[in-house]
Amino acid sequence: MAGMTKTKRRARRAYRKERLVLLAFTVPALALYISFFIIPALQSLQYSLTNWNGYSATFDWVGLDNFTRALTNDSLFTNAVTNNLKFWLIVLAFQTLFALMLAVFLFRNFKGSALLRGLFFFPTILSSVSVAYIWKFIYDPNYGLGNDILGIFGISSSFLGNDDTAIYWIAITQVWFHAGQMMTIFIAGLQSVPQEMIEAAAVDGAGRWQVFKNVTWPMIAPATSIVMAYTTIQSFKAFDLILGLAGNPPKSSMDIMSTRIYTTFANSQYGYASAQAILFVIVIVALNFAVRRIVGLTQPKTES
């Protein structure tokens, strides 16, 4: 009896020791993450309630003044939000549809399909500044490729020089940059749709569009949600692309939320920039919820 409890106790002690060692494996990650990621995130909340300028020893608590100012009394911020929403809408609509179309074309293997998938994905790996410079040349009103092509149709554009449309031209660049990445997510979704379901629907006399709408689209809903969430996040984080195409600080016609926050920070308004950053997070989270709802609404209702 006594011997049994002793071995049991020893086994339990060994088990406990092992779990402690396993826990220790997570400590370096947790320590770095808490000290340099989580604590700063919480400090942002604190900064946002102050008027701290980054170098003074003192600051005042100003309550929600920074938030009120951003929302009601700062045309630069409102302008950045408006631009960002335009940019997001165009990128979300075009990139999602275009990436889905490419995926439908390429998810089955045929001669050259792997090469094309690899080619379309390629821009994603380039740095945003590189992509910005490639397109800066395309959009150059005097020497650029863009006007060479528009010239075929007898028209021309000043592209980024036109304040009303500049942000949409950047949206096109963003689609060129990331459509291949989204295509890849759709391809993974399409390849998981059982071929028999599509064949069964086709046997029942459904056309290509009918099959897509009633079988494929509901089956790839998870992929669609991921694509739209990623696209939303990327549209708000398109910081480098804007700096590369619109300068630092960017022209106001191309200023978006992330660049505005950075400019506010660079102007030593740490408190105010932190409040803008918190609004930025709220906008992204809210839009992600909205997008999820919209994807859900397009699904056919199941009758059961």
Binding site: P40, A41, Q43, S274
Partner: peptide, 12 residues
């Protein structure tokens, strides 16, 4: 959490 949400305190 996007970098904008903690970059300023990180800078400090």
């Amino acid at each position: 959490i996007p970098p904008q949400a903690n970059m300023i305190p990180q800078y400090v």
